[in-house]
Design a binder for these strands. Structure first.
Length: 603
DNA sequence: CTAGGGTTAG
């Protein structure tokens, strides 16, 4: 940090402080460049027992200054013990030490952590206090950086973002040091929209992004499926003197593998070639991403070729590599090959972990080999590993699907013994199991147990129950559950509404079904293909073929593409009754006009 | 401080 920028920032901060103080306390008359006022520091009150003139104690200040600049942390520690932490903070501000060094000192971080954890102080009161601190060394901005870091580390991401915004209002100049971890936390929590806003705001405030900033935001965009924007950002990097790294490409490739549409693996391959052409060489993770991508694309043979290729390039497959392949093989029903691959990994000194076993448990379950899957559960323990929620959920769901509810419930009991807490997924599997066999009492018992254990019902739970009620011709009761969802702060999904529309159709109550569709649109869920399929079938069953045809055309006009089920309904319910819908004509004449370039819709 | 693997509803 140079003197020039420090001075400017100081002036800015002071201007800001003046206006703030005058709005809050016009009569305070606090000398902004002088002493630290006592009142705003009250937020450290638990630590602050007296108000002596410690802060002007010249000896202590120079001593601290000396120790900090020499980075004698252990001696500083003894001073901290003798004084109280609050005073120590003040001393640091008064001693003219390099801000960068202050930043490195963990004690301040510890203080801010405690402050953030206690949750006793609002963002605004903290900012007010910081803003009235004297700032001769430009350390206030750094303190705000540290504050945001403290929020992030205590997983209070929203507060971190609030502080980030407020820092802008107060004109504290933040650094990537706090912005990057905040962006990453936002991405990890799936708050991509907020991360994007924060990134744009960084640019506006001239906080220079670095490679890590870009990688983090690109990752967020990929996770949100905004692959185009992610690609555009790679171009923007150059303007900031950054060039893409292996991590950038790995992130992009993974984004395409997981979020891409048809031909996504082709696109992934193009990116792979692009990185190599730029002399950025794929590493283990690149291969792992591609191997997993091809496995998910049901192209295990391509994945196996990459597996061999990576070894040719002297890159060693690790647990993740094997897990992807084993999982891919299991999902193809190729259990024998999966098991021999597991032998292979033992031969190459790669130890299987819970994830490996979970994939195998799933493989056995899908083959209906529940006995073998169950044996594997005990094997995990024998290997000195602990089965986790996913292991149990996989097995429990398998038992539920074949109607062995007794076994499933027993496994839930075993979870408690092994101190693995059943989660909402566990309960959803079990509740769905009971609902399938019409045992609503069993389902209800589990709902009560959830209440006792403090596990909250989620969207899926409600969908299961709505589905069960609709199936039993109790759609009216299901509507009550729909209303209850809002009270619980859950927003019903397409599945929820479609299930209800279907329920009313099955009961022959078309009016109620159409009303439910109106309600769903009013509540912000546009009817989708499933909605139309369900309604069209309902109309057909009532013999209202003309009206069904009308809906068919309506769905085409809205640009919805009919799926396999639509065609089945058309063929079986309309054509077989001698009615010929004009579906093909519409498909040909309307579709080209409705095609809008995707980029145009992005903004 | 940035990238990779396992389950679940419909």
């Amino acid at each position: 940090m140079n003197v020039q920028s420090c001075f400017q920032s100081l002036k800015r901060a002071n201007r800001c402080q003046k206006t703030l103080i005058s709005t809050i306390d016009p009569s305070s008359g606090v000398s902004l460049l002088g002493n630290v006022p006592e009142t705003p520091l009250r937020f450290f009150s638990s630590l602050d027992s007296s108000h002596t003139s410690f802060i002007s104690d010249g000896y202590h200040i120079s001593r601290v200054s000396e120790l900090v600049s020499k980075q004698h942390w252990s001696e500083l520690k003894t001073i901290v013990r003798e004084t109280n932490p609050n005073r120590f903070l003040q001393l640091l501000f008064e001693s003219e030490v390099d801000a960068e060094i202050v930043l490195r000192y963990g004690e301040i971080r510890a203080q801010l952590h405690a402050l953030v954890k206690s949750e006793r102080h609002s963002n605004s009161s903290i900012f007010h206090t910081i803003s009235v601190w004297s700032d001769r060394f430009c350390s206030n901005s750094i303190i705000v950086d540290m504050l945001i870091l403290a929020y992030v580390k205590n997983s209070k991401t929203d507060s971190a973002f609030e502080a980030f915004e407020r820092a802008g209002d107060y004109r504290f100049k933040l650094s990537v040091l706090s912005c990057n971890p905040m962006l990453n936390a936002l991405v990890k929590e799936g708050k991509i929209g907020i991360a994007e806003t924060a990134y744009k705001e960084m640019i506006r405030r001239r906080i220079a992004p670095n490679l890590i900033t870009f990688n983090t935001v690109i990752n967020g965009l990929c996770k949100a499926g905004k692959l185009q924007k992610a690609g555009d950002l790679v171009e923007d990097m150059k303007a900031w003197g950054c060039s893409p790294s292996v991590i950038t490409y790995n992130t992009l490739i993974d984004g395409h593998c997981k979020m891409g549409r048809v031909g996504k693996m082709y696109k992934a391959d193009v990116l792979l070639k692009e990185m190599v052409s730029k002399n950025i060489f794929p590493n283990e993770i690149t291969f792992n991403i591609l191997i997993d991508g091809y496995c998910k694309d049901e192209n295990v043979s391509a994945a196996m070729k990459l597996f061999e290729e990576m070894q040719r390039q002297d890159l060693k497959p690790n647990v993740v590599t094997y897990n992807s392949l084993i999982n891919g093989l299991c999902n193809q029903g190729r259990l024998d090959e999966a098991l021999s691959l597991q032998d292979g990994m033992l031969g190459s000194n790669v130890k299987p972990n819970v994830v490996t076993y979970n994939a195998l448990v799933n493989g056995f379950s899908k083959k209906g080999m529940l006995k073998e899957a169950r044996v594997l559960l005990d094997d995990i323990a024998k290997q000195n590993m602990a089965p986790n929620v996913i292991t149990f959920n996989t097995l429990i769901d398998a038992y539920c699907k074949v109607g062995k509810m007794g076994e499933a419930i027993a496994l839930r009991g075993l979870m408690f013994d092994r101190e693995v807490c059943p989660d909402i997924s566990t309960y959803n599997c079990l509740i769905a199991g009971f609902c399938r066999e019409g045992n609503m009492e069993g389902a209800s018992n589990l709902l009560n147990e959830m209440g006792d254990k403090g596990v909250r019902a989620d969207l899926v739970t409600y969908n299961i129950l709505v589905g069960a009620l609709c199936r039993d011709g109790e759609s009216r009761k299901a509507v009550r559950l729909l209303n209850e969802m809002f009270e619980m702060g859950l927003s019903p999904s397409h599945v929820t509404y479609n299930t209800l529309v279907d329920g009313f159709c099955r009961e022959g109550n078309l009016k109620a079904a159409l009303n439910m569709r109106m309600r769903m649109e009013k509540e912000g869920r546009r009817a989708n293909v499933v909605t139309y399929n369900v309604l069209i079938r309902g109309l057909c069953l009532k013999g209202k073929l003309e009206e069904a045809n009308g809906l068919l055309n309506e769905m085409l006009e809205k640009g919805l593409i009919p799926n396999r089920i639509t065609y089945e309904i058309v063929r079986e319910e309309m054509m077989e009754k001698g009615f010929v819908p004009d579906i093909d004509g519409h498909l040909c004449s309307k579709k080209p006009h409705q095609r809008v370039p995707l980029q145009a819709l992005e903004f």
